[in-house]
Design a protein around this nucleic acid. Structure first.
Length: 192
DNA sequence: TAGCTGATTGACT
DNA sequence: GTCAATCAGCTAA
């Protein structure tokens, strides 16, 4: 069972931490790929200058709607990034999913990435992650509580330490400590 | 219509 | 550490 809508109807900071350890599942045709979320970043509403809710029109309808919806965008002309919209309608915010530890479909991810299945960090980094799962702008607006792109609760008991720090790669509001990752996890993207 | 910017990556020096 | 690849959607004209 995917995480319920209510999971997402909370502030981005809370959802970002809660998503660590959860499993992102992508179904494309008969192919299933999944991975454990090990790294996220929170983006707030217009008060957060780095958030697309603040300066990226076109994403407004998604940001201001109910949470639990995928927001996929293209940047630098070649990389897709996957976000989960958070908060109830009228409370914009989202969580950028930056890195996964591959679970099901490792071979498929490796093929999509064009690397060996044994390669480390198959889905580490927002661009790599979306490529490994076969995501594109067509997945923008997808409902994360049902359908082909969902997020499941952590399987079994999982304990880990959550580390926090400044977000990576942004040019506005650089200092806010809104990046969260599983401490010492090998699949966390290295930059920063 | 042209020009600019960006929540990146990988290849190269 | 530097740099090119490449595009959606803005802005200026």
């Amino acid at each position: 069972m995917p995480l319920p809508r209510a999971f997402y109807l909370r502030p981005p900071r809370v959802v970002a931490r809660a998503l660590l350890g959860c499993v992102l599942v992508s179904r494309k045709g008969r192919t299933l790929t999944s991975g454990r979320i090990v790294e996220t970043e929170a983006y707030l509403g217009p008060e957060d200058a780095a958030s697309h809710a603040a300066f990226r029109p076109g994403s407004h309808a998604l940001f201001y709607g109910d949470g639990g919806v995928a927001y996929v965008f293209l940047n630098y002309g070649m990389h897709h990034c996957l976000n989960a919209i958070t908060g109830p309608s009228g409370r914009p915010g989202c969580v950028l999913i930056r890195a996964l530890e591959p679970l099901d479909g490792r071979a498929t991810m490796a093929r999509r990435r064009g690397v060996a299945a044994t390669a480390p960090r198959l889905a580490s980094g927002p661009g790599n992650l979306t490529r490994a799962l076969g995501l594109s702008l067509r997945d923008n607006g997808a409902d994360l509580t049902r359908g082909s792109l969902t997020i499941e609760p952590p399987p079994g008991r999982t304990t880990f330490r959550i580390a926090a720090g400044p977000r990576i790669g942004i040019t506005r509001d650089v200092a806010r400590p809104l990046r969260f990752w599983i401490a010492a996890h090998p699949a966390v993207s290295r930059r920063g």
